[in-house]
Simulated scan of single mutants.
Amino acid sequence: MPELNHYLQLLIDGLSVGSTYALIAIGYTMVYGIIGMINFAHGEVYMIGSYIAFIAIAGLAMLGFDNLPLIMGAAFLASIIVTSAYGYSIERVAYRPLRGGNRLIPLISAIGMSIVLQNTVLLAQDSRGKAIPDPMPGGFDLVAGGAVSVSYMQVFIFVITFVAMYGLTLFISRSRLGRACRACAEDIKMANLLGINTNNIIALTFVIGAALAAVAAVLISMRYGFINPNLGFLAGIKAFTAAVLGGIGSIPGAMLGGLVLGVAEAFGADLFGDQYKDVVAFVLLVLLLLFMPTGILGRPEVEKV
């Protein structure tokens, strides 16, 4: 029984981290699903979101505000607005002028944008990490005696992640813009011929992806209480791994891939040590792609003519 409780605790911890990976991974998979390219600046957008949340929290604290809903609401709102603006700008500057040419050129442009964003934050905030206090200390026991516990912050992460993903699902499936996104993902040339402004839809996917990355940034920053200018690279690689695991281009796949990756990391850290959890995650990716090249929910790509 103690061993079962231990594994249950690992599962809960893995799902809480994996749900935030899923939020970031959706940004990769939406962009790839429509234009077939990877936005390698997405991780830095996530990093900027965490810094905006830190500035919002610190600013309100300096002004004497101590209302928790107000502080967290301001952190989410400021982070979403700023990162959405960055997502839109990246599409306009690094992608739109280069679409239609060699597919490697926008990729190089995105990597260059990633370096620019990272160094901009380094210049503005220096290289030292910043601490963010846990806004929801404490938790409760699922099993008597503390064998399995859940923190209030983990519950908050589950709730916010579920709301964000459910909202995105409703948007994609029921709204006019969501249907336009699906049409562009199926055949962007035909969508353009049918009168859909594909440039605006592509920009919208960058904005949505950046907004979801901002939500993940606020949640992870509050969960671990520490940010630095380099966290975007690793988070971006993890989210990209989650997107590929689930099936790049599939939104449900990105969600599932994030959860699988988070659980794999939690169990890998327990078996081999915390320093090897990243190795476990990438070994899982390699093994899965050897047997399922399109990922868990991915579909074989059909060349559109």
Rank of each mutant, 00 (worst) to 15 (best):
N102V: 06
G27R: 01
M62G: 14
R103A: 15
Y86E: 05
A94M: 12
L98V: 07
G101Q: 03
I38C: 12
A110E: 04
L98R: 02
D66A: 15
M47H: 07
R103L: 13
S50R: 07
I26D: 09
F76W: 01
A74S: 06
V31R: 01
L68H: 10
A110R: 07
L68F: 05
Y88F: 11
G101T: 15
V116R: 01
I115Q: 12
E44W: 13
T83K: 11
A58M: 11
A94Q: 02
I34P: 12
F54Q: 00
A61R: 08
P97W: 01
I57H: 06
G64F: 12
Y32L: 10
F40P: 09
Y28E: 02
A85H: 10
R96N: 08
L123Y: 10
T120D: 02
Y21L: 09
L107H: 04
M113A: 06
V45C: 11
E44N: 11
A75E: 11
I80L: 07
G49A: 12
S50H: 07
P106W: 00
F54L: 13
N119L: 07
Y95R: 02
V45I: 14
Q118R: 10
M30R: 11
F65C: 09
G100I: 08
I80D: 01
A75L: 15
M30C: 11
G64D: 05
P69V: 05
A61Y: 03
H42K: 04
R103T: 04
G100F: 08
A25E: 07
S109A: 15
D66R: 06
G64A: 14
P97R: 01
L23E: 05
R92I: 05
I24T: 13
R99Y: 05
A53D: 14
T29F: 14
L123W: 03
A25Q: 01
S89H: 14
I52V: 09
I90D: 04
G112W: 09
Y21V: 04
V82P: 04
I71C: 10
P97F: 00
I24F: 09
Y28N: 03
G100E: 09
R99H: 04
F76K: 01
V82G: 15
G36T: 00
F54E: 03
I48C: 05
